[in-house]
Design a protein around this nucleic acid. Sequence first.
DNA 1: TAATTAATGCAACCTAGTTGCGTTTTGCAA
DNA 2: TTGCAAAACGCAACTAGGTTGCATTAATTA
Lengths: 129, 129
Amino acid sequence: MSLPRNTKAKQAVLDEINRSTYALSQPELFERVKGTCDRVTVYRILDRLVAENKIHRIVNVDGTLNYAACNQCDTHNTHAHDHLHFSCLECKKIECLSEQSVHVQLPSHYQIKELFLTISGICPTCQGG
Amino acid sequence: MSLPRNTKAKQAVLDEINRSTYALSQPELFERVKGTCDRVTVYRILDRLVAENKIHRIVNVDGTLNYAACNQCDTHNTHAHDHLHFSCLECKKIECLSEQSVHVQLPSHYQIKELFLTISGICPTCQGG
DNA sequence: TAATTAATGCAACCTAGTTGCGTTTTGCAA
DNA sequence: TTGCAAAACGCAACTAGGTTGCATTAATTA
């Protein structure tokens, strides 16, 4: 097995993800760490961070991939994917609604790996008037 | 308002979607109606069919977009998105699990538009052995 | 059956993500 | 502290999915 190494670029990407209140896409992340590394490196760093269970990948309702560090995962040191994500159609931000509970009657004969539960709509900030 | 027209290409795409037991991507659909029309036309037909509420768009867990005609929508002539989708990690097929119920405690202060509830794993067919 | 305009074909373009390869850097161990 | 293996990187080129502009074709309906 290969053992992961820490680099400035990797730390910079992880810092940005941790700092953000919503999930970030690769283009957004690259913009934020600009100057630190190449855009290809950002892709590779994200793959590694996901493999190391440091962050997780959320698919937005439009198909774009976003990356977030969920609070649940931080505190329990395990990936809990059985919570809701909210995807705002206006600002395009996607965030975890970890306090909301979901009860899914799982299908039989199917081997479950992960649950992807996303609600689309307008977030409180974008509704603000 | 512009009134939609029916063309052979549009009908061919819709037929393929109705015929299929799982959601199809644009590349898959283009392959199946090959010779009928250009690939750009398939994209435009899919956009129109979604706008006309004839089909709906499902995001796969890997971010690819797929198109399906759910049974629920056909029978009730309304788009019901509060049911589960199953996304197989092996054959990549995505299908509706319309008989399964989901109870989601909706968040307050958020304006809900649609629910995207997808389970990833291995489907019965791919487990078979 | 003629007129309106929705729908199409084609070429060019865009964005997200991947691959190959030679170079740099990290972390461990001598 | 220095040497070394391989993890990580930069760069260039490439691929796939999807979009746009515009001139042409064809579906409606009057």
